[in-house]
Design a protein around this nucleic acid. Structure first.
Length: 155
DNA sequence: GCCAACGTTGGC
DNA sequence: GCCAACGTTGGC
């Protein structure tokens, strides 16, 4: 089982939106970066655990966890000219972009902000905390995932 | 709103 | 294949 971090802007789709979704499950659509795509398409497995991160938020923070409940399949939003993530170069017979489905596990009682995470020794190599890190789908080490859960407590 | 960091595009 | 220009991300 692997561990991941998924970024989302809460003004677009928040973990509260995930909690309100049918079966607390959603398609993680709109990823338009090749490295992020490759992680989703090639490496994500059923049952992998996910940290949900709110970017461009106040404060930006890890806000909860989810699990992969469906592995990669074509991202149909790329085929829709009216969709903000439309990509004319992606065709249904040879899709460029993929998505997975995730299901909410829990929302942390206290969001873990970047300021709260930076001083944690166990997280010093975490991709999220690297300067200039922009990748919206990131692998997370098991030790990092467990450290995050510990910080989040049982609430 | 600023701007650094990064990815993509396209002329050559 | 280089690389300048441009667009996007995202913390602050």
């Amino acid at each position: 089982m692997k561990h991941w971090l998924l970024k989302t802007e809460p003004t677009t789709f928040s973990i509260q939106d995930l909690a309100a979704a049918p079966s607390q499950t959603t398609h993680w659509e709109g990823v338009r970066n090749y490295q992020a795509r490759n992680y989703m398409r090639d490496d994500m497995g059923l049952g992998d655990r996910v940290l949900v991160y709110h970017s461009n938020a106040d404060p930006s923070a890890i806000v909860g966890t989810a699990s992969i409940v469906r592995t990669a399949y074509p991202d149909a939003s790329a085929f829709d000219p009216k969709d903000p993530h439309f990509d004319p170069k992606s065709h249904p017979d040879a899709p460029t972009w993929f998505m997975v489905d995730i299901k909410l596990d829990r929302i942390f009682a206290q969001p873990l902000s970047l300021n709260a995470l930076r001083p944690v020794a166990a997280l010093k190599d975490m991709e999220l905390l690297r300067k200039g890190s922009r990748l919206s789908v990131q692998p997370v080490r098991k030790s990092e995932f467990e450290a995050i859960l510990k910080l989040a407590g049982r609430g």
